[in-house]
Amino acid sequence: MSHPTLPAIEVPPWETGNVQPLLHEIGHALRELLNNNKETCIDLHALPMAPGEEARLVEALGKGEISVQLRALGKSRIDETKYPGVWLITHFNANEEVVGKFIEITRIPDLIKSQREDIAAGLLNLEDELHEE
């Protein structure tokens, strides 16, 4: 069945309008970090985002001075944004698929610090090496 077609209507790209409020939330969290030393973590996957909105958020946050690449269970990228104290963390699995995306408002993300258990295991390995020589 054919119909006379209706005049086309331009649909603007879908927007959730979540980018701007999120930037305000980050600003608020940054003030908390400065005044009360309170850290915040935001799960970006928990928020509905339209295609392109996440990219615009990342663009708005920009690139800062530090970029860290973690290799544990696949790669992870930990980047400080152009606003010191705001970190963008992206976890990939071994297939290079994103499994988690977070914004952390902290002086340094815990994940960067060497972990107690890993230091202990590393020390054992080092002692083994020294023993063998």
């Binding site: 799960d43 996957h45 928990a46 973690l70 544990a72 269970l73 992870s76 976890h91 499994v99 988690g100 977070f102 815990d110 994940l111 972990q115 107690r116 258990e117 890993d118 295991a121």
Partner: peptide, 17 residues
């Protein structure tokens, strides 16, 4: 062979999941 860091990452991803 998963390190503590890997485990923490796993936990963060699991919470998100």
């Amino acid at each position: 062979g998963v390190s503590r860091r890997g485990f923490l990452k796993f936990c963060a991803a699991t919470a998100s999941l």
